[in-house]
């Protein structure tokens, strides 16, 4: 009987497996288990893992921390809007603000140094997409994500918003300059 008719045998569950099915199921199961194990293994041996560090916050509280960092470490301003370029010391906490429609402030980080990058949104959901290195994360209002990053390539990076956030979404960009250590 075909697949659109009731099974021919009343006790179809006792029909033995064909070898082709049994063999394939065994192979596919091994592959599935392997793919699962790769994820914990990469946490142990791999270098690219998101931290699990995140905090609840409010736009006001987060903005205050970002503003304090900007006040302390701004090295110059850029663009017609005089956006601050901030160069925080290696190893320090860096606060990046996502808001309609910019990533603020611009950052200047040293190649090969690690930074604790905090990111949060002041309003809607945003997407942190660092290009061309291609690192992507979801940024939510009310949540402060912390990510320890180590820029190990010399190219300057542009931060693009990759979560749709309204009419100016495609203009929401930011910058991370990578400089050689002093």
């Amino acid at each position: 009987m075909s697949a659109i008719q009731p099974p021919a045998e009343a006790v179809w569950w006792k029909q033995p497996l064909d070898r082709v099915e049994g063999t394939w199921i065994a192979i596919a199961l091994v592959w599935s288990l392997f793919m699962f194990i790769m994820m914990p293994l990469w946490h142990i041996y791999g270098k690219q893992n998101l931290s699990n560090e995140a905090y609840r916050t409010t736009p006001q509280a987060y903005m205050a921390k970002a503003q304090a960092m900007v006040n302390q470490y701004t090295v110059r301003t850029e663009t017609a809007a005089n956006l601050p370029v901030v160069r925080p010391p290696p190893g320090s906490d860096v606060y990046l603000v996502g808001r309609l429609w910019q990533w603020w402030p611009l950052l200047e980080l040293e190649q090969g140094q690690s930074y604790r990058l905090h990111i949060s949104s002041m309003d809607w959901q945003h997407g942190f997409s660092l290009q061309p290195v291609n690192i992507n994360a979801q940024i939510l209002p009310g949540y402060e994500m912390v990510l320890t990053i180590t820029p190990d390539t010399p190219a300057d990076q542009t931060i693009i918003c990759n979560e749709y956030c309204g009419l100016g979404h495609h203009n929401m960009t930011g910058k991370i300059y990578i400089v050689e250590g002093s």
Binding site: S129, H169, T173
Partner: peptide
């Protein structure tokens, strides 16, 4: 290559950066 979804302008013509 990092091209975004739900994005109107991959050339960023009007973006400040």
């Amino acid at each position: 290559l990092g091209v975004q979804r739900r994005h109107w302008d991959m050339a960023f013509t009007d973006a400040m950066i």
